[in-house]
């Protein structure tokens, strides 16, 4: 049975601690680019915590929002790729096939969420930092776009294990690295097509919104509004 992977992020729980940011770097072999490249906007963070300031002192306030690939149902990045490197997989993920990518960066320009990152250089890990690399995730080379995969390597491992044990995949049996790490449990991951899953239950909340819903991308990341 096909699944529709999705995520709910409760902004009322999120504290902006950024555990998800480092978890993603560690899991997905994301290279650090250094100060000069970072200043040119070339730092790669598949997930980031945005903060929105409202009001002036002393009534200033902040709202945090973790932003990652929204795994759109109708993804602008997919339609523009001349080599079909951005493609929609059967489980609803906006997958990026690295060895098809020729680096036009059309997808990055088309994405309204700014969550696709281009490798301007070959990544470098000063030895022996290369030993931290996760063998389950390929390292991207210069000229390639990369993005959040919902930790597809973890999805695959869980699916294979369930298959080997001849049983269906359980809800919340595994999680992407960001969800696993999240201390206030702001993030929940699972199958949106399974009405019994925690993620589809939370997606029914009256606090549920989607980011830039009005542009018609049908995101599969659902935010629960902060209350106050």
């Amino acid at each position: 049975m096909a699944r529709q992977w999705g995520m709910v992020i409760d902004l009322d729980r999120c504290t902006g601690c950024e555990a998800c940011v480092v978890a993603c770097h560690a899991e997905n072999n994301i290279a650090t680019v250094g100060e000069d490249q970072a200043a040119r906007g070339r730092a790669m963070h598949w997930i980031r915590v945005e903060r929105y300031w409202e009001g002036n002192f002393p009534n200033a306030r902040v709202i945090y929002r973790p932003v990652l690939c929204q795994q759109c149902g109708d993804a602008p990045c997919e339609a523009v790729c001349p080599t079909y490197a951005s493609y929609h997989n059967p489980e609803g993920l906006n997958a990026q096939i690295y060895n098809r990518c020729i680096g036009t960066r059309y997808c990055g320009n088309a994405c309204p969420y700014n969550v696709r990152f281009f490798n301007f250089y070959n990544p470098v890990w000063d030895k022996p930092l290369n030993l931290q690399l996760n063998p389950d995730v390929s390292v991207r080379s210069v000229g390639i776009m990369e993005k959040c995969t919902f930790c597809i390597q973890r999805i695959k491992v869980a699916e294979f294990r369930a298959q080997a044990e001849k049983r269906p995949l359980k809800d919340e049996e595994f999680n992407p690295a960001c969800v696993q790490s999240c201390p206030p449990k702001a993030m929940v991951f699972g199958d949106l097509d399974d009405p019994a899953s925690e993620v589809s239950r939370l997606a029914q909340s009256n606090r549920a919104t989607r980011l830039l819903e009005e542009v018609g991308t049908l995101p599969n990341v659902i935010y629960l509004r902060s209350v106050s």
């Binding site: 601690c17 950024e18 555990a19 940011v21 480092v22 978890a23 560690a26 899991e27 930092l129 931290q132 690399l133 996760n134 063998p135 690295a177 696993q180 790490s181 999240c182 201390p183 449990k185």
Partner: peptide
């Protein structure tokens, strides 16, 4: 290869902050 919170530990309940995860480096 990766550091995560120990799910059985009564202080952090399987969770870990960004600094703890970066201890790998």
């Amino acid at each position: 290869k990766k550091i995560e919170g120990n799910p059985d530990h009564p202080v952090n309940h399987g969770k870990l902050c960004p600094r703890g995860q970066a201890a790998l480096q």
